[in-house]
C-alpha cells in the first residue's frame, strides 16, 4: 500500500494537461462557431434593416419592388408548428404512457428501437411520402383541387416530430422511480390514478421539455414542408384557415436563397428571416432545457 502510494503514475500529468487543453480548445471552438453564425446572421441582416420602406412587417413580398413583407412566412411557420403540435402531442403522450406502463420490457424495447429509427429518417423521405400520398388524401378528404396546403404541412410535420416527442416523453415517464408506482398501488389506487396522481406530476417538466424540443425541430424543418405547403406568400383568408396554401420561413429560404445575389437586400431579407427563426429556436431550446433539467429534481 505504502509502496503504491509512493509511486506517482508515469506521465499522468502530461497526458492530463494535453487532454485538458484539447477539451478546452474544443469547447472554445464550439462557442466560436455559434458566435460566428449569429454574428454573420446579424451582419448580413444589415442591408435590409437599413432600408427605408422595406415593409418587413407587411404581408407583401416582392424583392423586385423592394418589398420584403415577412409576416406570411412568420405566421406560416407558427401556424404549421401549432398544427404539428396538435397532431403529435396527444398521440405521442398516449403512446408514451402505453409504452412506459406496459409490463413487457421486450415490447417496450422493440417500440423504442423502432421510434429511434424513425427519428433518423431523412426529412426528404417524409416529404416524398407527403407528396405521393398525404397530399392526395387531404385533397380528397376536403374536396380540394390541390392538397399542397398548410394542413398537409402541419400533419406531415406532426408525423415527423412524433418520434422525437414520444421518445423524450417516454424517457420522462419511465425515469420516475418504480417505488412511487409500488407505493401508490399498495394504497389501492387504480392505474389511471397512479399515473395522474404520482407519475404525471413528476414527469410533467420532462414532457414539457420534450414538447418544446419537438416544436423547435418542427420550426427548423425545410424540405418536407417545402414540398407540401404550396409556397404562397400570403396570409390565409380567413386568417386561421388551414386549407389554404402558405409559406414558412424555412420553405421560403429553401426556395429563394439560391436565386438571390450575395450582399443584396433580397439576400439580406432572407438572412434576417433566418435570424428570426434561430432566435425562436434558441428561446425554445433554452426553455426546454430548463424544463428537462427540472424533471425529478425534487424526488
Amino acid at each position: 500500500m505504502s509502496t503504491l502510494a509512493a509511486m506517482p503514475p508515469k506521465s499522468a500529468p502530461q497526458h492530463g494537461d494535453a487532454l485538458k487543453a484539447y477539451c478546452q480548445i474544443s469547447a472554445i471552438l464550439s462557442v466560436l462557431i455559434v458566435a460566428l453564425i449569429l454574428s454573420t446572421l446579424i451582419l448580413q441582416s444589415g442591408p435590409v434593416l437599413s432600408l427605408k420602406n422595406s415593409g418587413m412587417f407587411s404581408t407583401h413580398w416582392n424583392p423586385d419592388a423592394g418589398q420584403y413583407g415577412m409576416m406570411p412566412m412568420v405566421f406560416g411557420s407558427v401556424f404549421v408548428m401549432i398544427i404539428a403540435a396538435i397532431v403529435a402531442f396527444p398521440i405521442g403522450l398516449m403512446t408514451a404512457i402505453y409504452i412506459s406502463e406496459t409490463r413487457s420490457s421486450k415490447l417496450r424495447r422493440f417500440i423504442k428501437s423502432v421510434l429511434e429509427l424513425l427519428t433518423g429518417i431523412p426529412s426528404i423521405v417524409y416529404g416524398l411520402i407527403g407528396v405521393a400520398y398525404l397530399n392526395i388524401w387531404v385533397a380528397e378528404a376536403f374536396d380540394l383541387q390541390s392538397g399542397r396546403i398548410i394542413l398537409t404541412a402541419g400533419i406531415l410535420l406532426g408525423i415527423m416530430i412524433l418520434p422525437t416527442f414520444l421518445t423524450l416523453t417516454e424517457d420522462a415517464i419511465s425515469t420516475v422511480p418504480a417505488r412511487f408506482r409500488e407505493n401508490a398501488k399498495a394504497l389501492g389506487l387504480y392505474r389511471h390514478e397512479i399515473f395522474k396522481l404520482t407519475i404525471l406530476p413528476q414527469a410533467k417538466s420532462g414532457i414539457a421539455g420534450a414538447g418544446l424540443l419537438a416544436i423547435g425541430r418542427a420550426l427548423g424543418e425545410t424540405m418536407a414542408v417545402m414540398l407540401v405547403i404550396g409556397s404562397l406568400d400570403r396570409l390565409p383568408s380567413p386568417l386561421f384557415n388551414p386549407l389554404s396554401s402558405g409559406q414558412t420561413i424555412t420553405s421560403k429560404l429553401g426556395r429563394e436563397v439560391g436565386e438571390s445575389a450575395f450582399g443584396s437586400a433580397h439576400f439580406s431579407a432572407l438572412v434576417f428571416m433566418s435570424l428570426i427563426l434561430v432566435s425562436i429556436t434558441i428561446v425554445l431550446t433554452i426553455i426546454s432545457q430548463y424544463f428537462l433539467s427540472r424533471k425529478n429534481t425534487y424526488v
Binding site: 412511487f180 407505493n183 401508490a184 399498495a186 394504497l187 389501492g188 389506487l189 390514478e193 396522481l197 413528476q202
Partner: peptide, 30 residues
C-alpha cells in the same frame, strides 16, 4: 380492494412529492 385491506410499507421510505396532508389523502380519494 385487496390492496386497501392489506396495507404495505416498503423498505425505502417513499413519500409523494406533495404535502403531508395530500400524502395522507392519496389512498382515501376513492
Amino acid at each position: 380492494e385487496l390492496r386497501r385491506e392489506i396495507g404495505m410499507v416498503f423498505q425505502q421510505p417513499c413519500v409523494f412529492p406533495c404535502s403531508i396532508y395530500d400524502n395522507m389523502l392519496m389512498g382515501l380519494r376513492n
